[in-house]
């Protein structure tokens, strides 16, 4: 089934599929870790204090790595009142302003992520000993990707979007 409307440039679509794969792996880790915690209570040999941390950080990775993908594919939860109030050229202007605001917010978060990476360099997580700087690199990547895609969207504001369908996410 092909849908009409604007799509992201090919480079961003390729990067989007990488982001989605990272999220899929994180989801699998969450499932296995939480299940592991259940099983390890009955099989003490499998007891490993890292599972809780692994699951929680995987959820964080999933969340932040999807930020850019969802901006690029019009998939974030947003309030679409204005779609019914404003039509045509005015609506394109609204979309451009909206994308610009999104880009600015993402850029500010990239700046914050950078500060956190610097501030927490050398610190590690309690159970697994993962460098915390690596964890803050995920939101840095996610929001940088989001900022780039939002900037692209400013220029594509005049085109109609493909409606987002989670079931067909690629």
């Amino acid at each position: 089934m092909t849908r009409e409307g604007w799509r992201e440039p090919a480079v961003l679509r390729a990067w989007g599929s990488v982001e989605l794969w990272i999220a899929v792996v994180a989801l699998a880790v969450i499932f296995v870790s939480v299940l592991w915690q259940v099983v390890s209570r009955f099989v003490p040999a499998l007891n490993w204090p890292g599972v809780g941390e692994l699951a929680s950080y995987s959820l964080i990775v999933l969340t932040f790595i999807m930020v850019g993908y969802l901006i690029g594919n019009n998939g974030h939860i947003a309030i679409q009142i204005i779609d019914y109030l404003v039509k045509g050229r005015a609506f394109a202007v609204v979309k451009a302003v909206s994308a610009a605001c999104t880009a600015v917010i993402c850029a500010m978060l990239v700046w914050e992520a950078y500060h956190l990476i610097v501030a927490y360099s050398g610190r590690r997580t309690a159970a697994l000993g993962i460098p915390i700087g690596i964890l803050y690199a995920v939101p840095l990547i996610g929001f940088a990707s989001g900022a780039i895609r939002a900037v692209v969207r400013i220029f594509a504001a005049g085109h109609e979007d493909v409606p987002f369908d989670a079931a067909e996410a690629r």
Binding site: L27, L59, L62, I65, M66, V67, L70, A169
Partner: peptide, 16 residues
């Protein structure tokens, strides 16, 4: 795999 993709995009939206 497609089920995992669908779940990932829905989760990402809610968790942010």
């Amino acid at each position: 795999v497609q089920a995992a993709r669908e779940t990932a995009v829905i989760t990402g939206g809610i968790m942010l």
